[in-house]
Amino acid sequence: MTADGPPLRLLPRLDDTNRFFWTSGADGRLRFLRCQECLTYVHPPAPICPSCLGSKLTPDAVSGRATLHSYTVNHQQWIPGSQEYIIALVEIDEQEGLRLTTNLTACEPEEAAIGMAVEVVFALHDDVYLPLFRPLRRPKAPQSAPDQRGGPQKGKGR
């Protein structure tokens, strides 16, 4: 059985810049800073929009859906006794190039495939809601192929 992640979660130190991101999962939604001028999502959080240099940036919720861009099964026991876990690089559906390093959960290594659709699920550790991703659970009769990227409003940020 593959673990959801490392047995010990080294957590971020929360500050005024990153708190919104790491606590966003409290209501089950994933949020990124977004430029209110040109609608580019900005990550990691920054004081200005890298596309238009606008400074009106606020956290906006996204669908939580993403595409598996790459992954690796960690075998090395950085902490003695740890089980294998999958480190994933996911690209958020709303914007090309907007990525998170995360864990692929509820998924065995042999089921993982680059291009697969995944969705966010949060794991609470202390006061931090870690965004993890699991294979997208589709309703019956899906309308699109599993490797197709969805999202109604693809931004144009770098």
């Binding site: 992640g5 490392p6 979660r9 080294l10 957590l11 971020p12 130190r13 990153n18 990691p44 960690n74 090395q76 950085w78 740890s82 876990y85 480190i87 998170l100 390093t101 995360t102 864990n103 550790h125 931090v128 870690l130 993890l132």
Partner: peptide, 12 residues
Amino acid sequence: FLQWYLPFGAVS
């Protein structure tokens, strides 16, 4: 930058 990797066991 480490905050984006270490929580997920991407420690190296």
